[in-house]
Structure formats: C-alpha cells, structure tokens
Design a protein around this nucleic acid. Structure first.
Lengths: 332, 332
DNA sequence: CTGAAAGCGCTTACAG
DNA sequence: CTGAAAGCGCTTACAG
C-alpha cells in the first residue's frame, strides 16, 4: 500500500540499509548516492513509518499527558489548556507527539498510567497535578518510567518538576495588601490535599509573620475547590469578623467569596484570586488575580521531560516559573 | 528489559503463537492451556507491546485530533475542551488513544496532517473546524485517510461529520425573539469563512421571512471573531438604528455588543450569544446563549470515526446534535 | 562507502 | 489444539 524503504531502495538501486542511512544523514554515505536516494524518496513521496521506527528504536517520540478526571477543572481553569499549549509547542519543536488521556477518577489514575507505561506507547509522562503521597508519582518512580510533574512533589530532589514559587506568590500578594493598609486578611483555600493550597497558605502565614500580624485561625479556611464551598466559608468568616481583605487560592474560590460579599452588601473588602481566569476580568468589580504563567510551565515541563528522555545533561531537575499579580478593581 | 510474549511462552511451556492466541482469546486454544498461559502472564506482569502489535496489525488504535492554531479560540471557547472530553471518553471506552496536535497557522495545517498521516501514527483524524473549500478536508479525501469533521463540510454526502443544525438553532432564537415582540433584529456574525456563520445567518434570514419581516442589510454584519470587531460593528449599527434585539454567532461577539450597548446607556436591547461560555452567565446582565452540546459533538465524532475505521456498518454518515437556548437576563 | 543479516515484539496463514 | 515460520518496516552491528 504505502511506500516503504524497500521501494525507495529499488528505485535508487541501493539496499534498504543505505536508504536508512540517508534518512539519518549518515556521514559514511557518498553525496552521490545520497542525492540519488533523496530523489527517489521525493519521487515516491516516501515518509518513514514511525511505528516501525519506534519498534526498532524502542522509542516512540511521544509524550503522555494525563489530565485530571474532573471536568469542571478543565473547563474553568485555563491552567490546563494553557499548559497543554506550552507542552504541545515545545514538543512539536523537538519532534514529539502528545498523547493525552484522562482518568475518570482518582482511583482510576494509576491504572491509566499503568496501561500507558505497559503498552510502551510513550517515552515519558507529564503529570498535571500533584497531591500529598501522590500515588501516580509513586507508581512512575517504581516503574522507573521518565516523567515530569507540574507542581512541586514530595520528593523534590529525585523528581523532575516545574512549579511556580507558590509561597512567594502568595507572600507577595499578602505583603502588598498589608502595605496598602489591610490588617485582617482572610485566607480561603482549596483542599489541603493539593500542594498548591499548602504552599499558598505558607506564603500567607509568612507574610503575616514578617509584618508582625498574628494569624487568626478563624480567618483561615480550607475547603473544596468549588465556588459554593467558598461562598459558605465566606459567610461563616463574616459572621465571625469582616476582614479587610480575603486572599484565595483560585479564581473559582474568589468568585464564591465575591458573591457572598456582594450579597451582604460589603464592598470594601479587597479580594485576590489565582490563575487569572478569563472570567476574573469580567466580574463586577473585576477581580485581581495571580497569573501563574501556565504556558511557560508547560513548556518547561516538556523540556525537562524530553531532556531526561534523551539523556541530555541538565544542571537542574526543576524550574521555577515566575508569577505575576494582575491588579484589578477588587484591590483598589 | 520488559517482559515479552516470549517470556510468557517459556514460563507457560508453550509457543509464542499460543500466547498470542490466548491474548486474543482464540477459541481453538484449550481451556487448560489458556489458564496456564494466563497464570504466566499474571506472574510476569505481562502487558502487550502495543507498538509491535500496531506494526503487524497496521493499526495503531489511536485517533489524531487537530486543534486550531489560534490560542484565543482554545482559551475562550469552551467548545474545544468540551469536544475533547467527549472524544476522549468515547475513544477510551473503545480502546483508542488520542494524539493531539495543533497547527501554528492555517498554511501549516495541511503539513501537520500530512506528517501525521504519512507517519502512520493514527488510524483516523478528527478535524475540529470547517471552512469553505477546506484544504485539510481536501487533503484527507485525496489521501483516502479516515477522518471525521466537527461541522458540516461542503461535501455532505461523502464525508463523515457531526454538527448542530445551525440554521435551526438560529432560526429558533430569532423566531422566539420575534414572538416576544422584537421586530428589528440585528445580526452580528464572525467571518463568513467559517461555515457556522453562514448557516446561522441563514437561520436568521429564514426566521425573518417566515415572520414576514423584511431583512435590513444595514442590520447585518459579518466581521472577525473578536470582541473588538463586534464592538465597532455595534456602534455602527446603532448609528444607523437601534434594533430591538441583536443576535450573534458567538459569545465573544456578544460581549463586544454588550459593551457597546452599555457604553451608550442602551439597556432594552435583547442579546443572544452562542456556545454558552462560562463567562456569559457572569456578565451583567447575564447573556442568553445557545448551548451547542460540544461534548456530545465530540462523542459522536469519535463514534463515526471509529466505526469507519473498524468497518462497522452505519446507517448514516453524520449526526445532528441538538442545541438549546439558555435564557438569561439579556432576553428578559 | 555499501550490503546482507539479524532483530525489535507482535500476529496469523499454514501445517500437522 | 498447537507450533514453526514468515512478515510488518524499520535500524545497526558486522563484514567487506
């Protein structure tokens, strides 16, 4: 059916081995034959069968991308789409394909990975979330399969990863709010299960400490990553005390906070979200949010993974990607 | 390194052929050997090398997904992410992987496809957009490579495709607006290059006609798919005449329209968007929008493609997916 | 500088 | 019911 290396060989009157060497531009082949073979390839419109090549090379030049099971995350959080773009761009540049899969739920995740690794479809895997005692990470380490994670893992030293400096990102936000005169600052985060929540909370606490403000546990909430949970948390917090400002670990959470605040007619509480979703700028008032530079996270994740796969020496096993607070009306 | 069919064969004291037959559950193998082989597979933790299988079967059981080059689209329009989910779910159920690529621009697209097809990585391809004289479609038809498109193509009969009934979707919207008492209804669409624009315009015109309203060309705009273009178009339209309602072919366009209306202090013009983006519900006033059921579009696209690949007889070469107007404040 | 041969890990027609 | 052999389309060590 399709043209193979053999057809090209016949056409150019050489052996298949020679054609293969011309493809890889082997220096031991004379320029004359190279030209002849290339002409034959062009005439026949030859394109190498990458499956066959993968089998002999034991390398597919494709990266596996595992997306979270939860659908809401994917749709609401631009992080995943942006990260995908970054990954895709870098991979394309380096000649890699991206295979993507999603787990239906947490339990499913290791099985999905197991199939992917076992089938030998991918040279490496990109994980887009990290949890405490992450079973996916444990599995990939156990299988000694190349992988990279977006987010700082437990085992920082022996894992390849990219992340923002979430402690610093939140520290900067809270420090700025304090400098602007806010004293009582509430924190509403997602579940502690997710690393980002933890680090952002640490940054929050650090900023308070540095500025000699005593943390008040009644102003700190860690709930689900939903708007509704944030809405409830805010109402509870207000019952206790209306803070000067509320920082959150996600725009979605900030939306819930804003809804609760508006309902109570409270307008002078500053509010900051995370991830800089498209929606945050459309809110009334528009919500300040931290841009985590997801596309760059994706690019560098792909870079770490590909270098690892190709055994390219690296001076580091991780990259810290800069963040940036986008100030809007909610902090004015 | 990894365990192969040969290792299993040794362990179970059978030939590799037999192991292969057990894997495919060939009925000619005795239950006794089947059990023995399965035990060996379990003990060795055997997983078939899918690359090798692909090479002999000449089928990779993976689908190629081509995403648009434009980044804005991906981020703003939930269509792509939702469609991806639908595709991914169906594919997973049927044991297919998804390979995704993006073109950097329109010219690049055919080349990306050519590489994908030529490399023999994918059994079929899913196209997520359709244009007039679509070169990607032409290419895939020429190469006789299985594919399906999301959107109605020029060659409806000989192509596999899924789409909404865009004529009907817009017809219903406009008809409803008219029934509600709106007479002068403006239309602001994206570029005519995209099929959806065309069909939605037809639906608009049809609804006017059926209701004996004469179309006014000064109330019809086809511009870029950007908020800015829509904003300008709206201002122009208002200069000519303020309509009772404005229908658009995309939420992004509706956002531009709304901005222009609010700036002019116009509050009594009904407005309808398309694609039911998350943002539309957060606007003030919230914007009514047509949900095009992207996840279902994706699922049925995957279904058509996989059936085609596996030569499963089908009674149809296309599916029309239902749409639904989500009414919000902008049409009250 | 080039070719013949072996091998990657499967599947399947053929033979028994 | 099971096995030996050929083949999928490449790459590369070995030989010349």
């Amino acid at each position: 059916m399709s043209v193979t290396i053999k057809d090209v060989a016949n056409r150019a009157n050489v052996s298949p081995s020679t054609v293969s060497r011309v493809i890889s531009n082997n220096s031991r082949i004379s320029d004359a034959t190279k030209e002849r073979v290339r002409a034959a390839m062009a005439e026949l419109n030859y394109q190498p069968n990458l499956i066959a090549r993968s089998l002999t090379n034991k390398s597919t030049k494709t990266l596996g991308l595992l997306l979270p099971g939860s659908k809401a995350d994917l749709l609401l959080n631009p992080f995943f789409v942006q990260a995908m773009r970054g990954i895709s761009s870098y991979a394309k540049e380096k000649g890699y394909y991206i295979l993507f899969t999603h787990a239906d739920n947490d339990e499913d995740e290791v099985e999905v990975l197991s199939n992917l690794v076992g089938s030998q479809w991918v040279d490496g895997i990109i994980l887009t979330t990290v949890k405490d005692n992450d079973r996916s990470i444990a599995f990939l380490q156990y299988r000694k399969h190349p992988f990279v994670v977006i987010g700082k893992p437990d085992d920082e030293k022996n894992t390849y990863w990219v992340d923002n400096d979430n402690i610093k990102a939140m520290y900067d936000v809270v420090d700025l709010l304090i400098k602007k005169g806010n004293k009582n600052i509430g924190f509403i985060g997602g579940s502690h299960e997710f690393k980002v929540t933890k680090y952002r909370l640490l940054g929050y606490l650090k900023a308070l400490k540095v500025n000699n403000i005593k943390a008040d546990l009644n102003l700190i909430y860690e709930k689900d990553y939903t708007e509704e949970a944030a809405y409830e948390a805010t109402k509870e917090m207000i019952d206790y005390q209306t803070p000067d400002a509320i920082v959150t670990t996600d725009d979605l959470i900030a939306f819930g906070v804003q809804r609760a605040l508006l309902e109570q007619g409270i307008e002078d509480v500053s509010l900051v979200g995370f991830n800089n979703t498209v929606i945050s700028q459309y809110k009334k008032p528009s919500i300040s949010s931290v841009d985590i530079n997801a596309e760059k996270l994706g690019m560098f994740a792909a870079k770490l993974l590909i270098n690892q796969i190709e055994n390219i020496p690296m001076e580091t096993n991780n990259y810290i990607i800069d963040t940036k607070l986008i100030e809007r009306d909610s902090t004015k």
